[in-house]
Computed example of a mutant assay.
Amino acid sequence: MTTGAPPTRTPRRSRARTFVPLALAVWLVLEIWLLTVVADAAGGFTVFLLLVAGALLGATVVKRAGRRAFANLTGTFQRAQEAVRRGEEPQAPGRAAAEDRNGFLMLGGLLLMLPGLISDALGLLLLVPPVRAAVGRWAERAVERRMGAAAPGSLQDAFQQARIHRPDGKVVPGEVIREDAPQGPARPGEPRPPLLP
């Protein structure tokens, strides 16, 4: 005798959850192997100096990129406040902000800070501006493709689709209107209504 409940399907394991741990393990083995090869050829002290120099350079890059990001953010807020004071609508950051690729600069610094020669080489590559710009354009296209494949339309549509198709229950779009809520903004000096009746 069956109960009538539909059989539950176990969700498929994504490719990322399968291959990312394997790729990390291979990367770790390659880093250790390369360190031992260089240590045999140049000596252990040379490898130690390379690792320390990479960590120091990476820390410097991350610090400078963080300062630049903070300065860009502060400048954007100041321009927006000035536009609001003049009665204009604040403008979105322009193309120069997208071309800055500050996040990839920070990623390059973090890769330099990681102990290993392969990560140092990748970090040094991300410090080169044309490489950083090319990686940024590739990442933007990849994100746009993934978002386009997820749901046609805007970003909000994609999140709405993700909410609607959740396996844990049904989502009903709607709005809650409380009739006992005060109408209009509260006046200064008026006591606020209690949180609980």
Rank of each mutant, 00 (worst) to 15 (best):
A121Y: 06
L196Y: 14
E190T: 15
P6H: 05
G148V: 06
A5K: 07
P93E: 04
A55D: 02
T3W: 02
E88Y: 09
Q160W: 11
S154Q: 04
A142P: 03
N72D: 10
W33K: 05
A134F: 04
A151C: 08
P11L: 00
R79W: 01
V135R: 02
L107W: 02
L112I: 05
L125C: 13
R141G: 04
E99W: 13
H165W: 13
D100I: 02
L49I: 07
A42N: 10
A25C: 15
Q160N: 15
A181Q: 09
R101D: 09
A98G: 08
N72L: 07
A39T: 06
R95C: 08
A53S: 10
G54V: 03
A181Y: 03
V37A: 15
Q183L: 12
G123I: 01
L30C: 09
V29G: 12
R13C: 14
L50N: 00
A149W: 01
M113W: 05
E144T: 10
D100R: 05
F159H: 11
S154N: 03
T36V: 11
R67Y: 06
S14G: 14
A133K: 08
G189Q: 04
E175R: 14
G4M: 10
P193L: 09
T60I: 02
G109Q: 01
G87N: 09
T74I: 05
T74A: 15
L107N: 01
N72I: 00
P93W: 00
Q78H: 13
G94I: 10
F70T: 05
R64N: 05
M106A: 14
A92R: 11
R68C: 01
F104N: 03
A162S: 10
T3Y: 04
E190D: 15
A151H: 01
D168Y: 07
V52R: 08
K63L: 14
T2C: 01
L110V: 10
P188Y: 05
P7N: 03
G103D: 00
Q78A: 15
D168A: 11
A134Y: 00
R187M: 12
R17D: 11
G43Y: 01
P152F: 06
Q91Y: 00
L50T: 00
T10K: 04
V171D: 03
P167H: 04
G153R: 06
Q183H: 06
A23L: 09
L105G: 07
V135W: 01
F45N: 15
V38A: 08
